[in-house]
């Protein structure tokens, strides 16, 4: 897959600076300069030209993005991750790459991303709970990383797991899910240029509550597919287990592509509530593949998307 996205929109055009330069971010100029030399928290990585898929909504503020999170390892409340994630140590961080790869082993975030293009991507983010945000990510394409570690022929899926650290993750002491959190993609989905491993938001390193130090972003799928704080990446030839599918297969499928025509059994997926609009925000229509149909629909040709949810 080697096409380029047709757009002249840069996310910097859509990002209101004042929205994210809130009080907390305005530090001394020197500190800001120092932060600026680290792009998305990755030393040594080069910045690729900014581009994204046109979005008619403004990006959410950093405050929205960092205070409203589903990250059950830190609690099931939306504000719990912000409150509880502070003690997670994300440096050093080891990502175990294994399975059907040429170069298995333990990698640091820098090892994995070194030399790869860092992209700025303004993506819609649609939660299965029918709320949505627009997030300016910084990250590398998962496909670039997979090419780097060398995918062996015969591999068909990629699986990921999130860290489990009971001493700093109060949520894992209660079996809401079967920990560790697990997610997976088909190899073509993983290699798709839209699929990111994000390391930053708004040119800042990821906050812990957003999945620091490195997380998946698959913008055409419901948010729970975009697994946070990744500690293993595994290439397999069998469809991997995924956490929400294990918890409730009727409600959460392996693919979990955003699809306004297929309702979640407990709520409609036809519309979504944009976060950040206040008490009287209007609902908006949910788009097929979250608005990325032109880019990704071809991967699902011949599949019945009301069955392969």
């Amino acid at each position: 897959m080697s096409y380029r996205f047709r757009t002249d929109l840069k996310w910097s055009d859509a990002t209101p600076k004042e929205a994210f330069f809130n009080r907390r971010q305005i530090m001394t100029g020197a500190a800001a300069m120092a932060a600026g030399t680290m792009i998305g928290g990755i030393p040594g990585a080069t910045q690729a030209q900014a581009f994204g898929v046109p979005i008619e909504r403004e990006a959410n503020s950093l405050d929205d993005i960092t205070s409203y999170n589903n990250y059950y390892e830190f609690g099931t409340g939306k504000g719990d991750p912000k409150e509880n994630a502070g003690d997670l140590v994300t440096d050093p961080w080891v990502i175990q790459v294994g399975g059907m790869v040429d170069n298995p082993g333990n990698y640091s975030v820098a090892d994995l991303t070194d030399g790869l293009d860092v992209h700025d991507r303004l993506y819609r983010f649609r939660c299965v709970e029918a709320w949505s945000m627009v997030v300016p990510w910084n990250g590398v394409q998962l496909g670039d990383i997979l090419n780097k570690v060398g995918v062996q022929s015969g591999a068909k899926y990629v699986s990921f797991t999130t860290a489990v650290k009971p001493d700093v993750m109060p949520g894992v002491r209660f079996p809401v899910l079967d920990w560790p959190y697990r997610e997976g993609l088909r190899l073509d989905e993983a290699m798709h240029p839209l699929t990111l491993l994000a390391t930053g938001i708004y040119d800042e390193p990821l906050y812990n509550q957003n999945g620091a130090p490195i997380r998946l972003v698959v913008p055409w799928k419901y948010g729970f597919k975009s697994i946070k704080a990744i500690v293993t990446i595994n290439l397999t030839d069998e469809e991997p287990d995924t956490s929400w599918n294990l918890a409730n297969a009727r409600e959460y499928g392996f693919y979990s592509n955003v699809n306004p025509q297929v309702d979640h059994p407990r709520w409609s997926q036809a519309t979504e509530r944009p976060i950040g609009g206040g008490l009287f925000a209007k609902r908006i229509e949910t788009l097929m593949f979250n608005g990325y149909a032109d880019e990704v629909a071809s991967m699902y040709e011949g599949m019945d998307l009301s069955v392969d949810i």
Binding site: N60, D63, D64, S67, K78, W131, R273, I275, L279, A281
Partner: peptide
């Protein structure tokens, strides 16, 4: 609180 931001970024659900 909902009108003044005290209910967080998703005041509808919070309320």
């Amino acid at each position: 609180q909902g009108l003044t931001g005290g209910l967080g970024v998703d005041p509808v659900k919070a309320m």
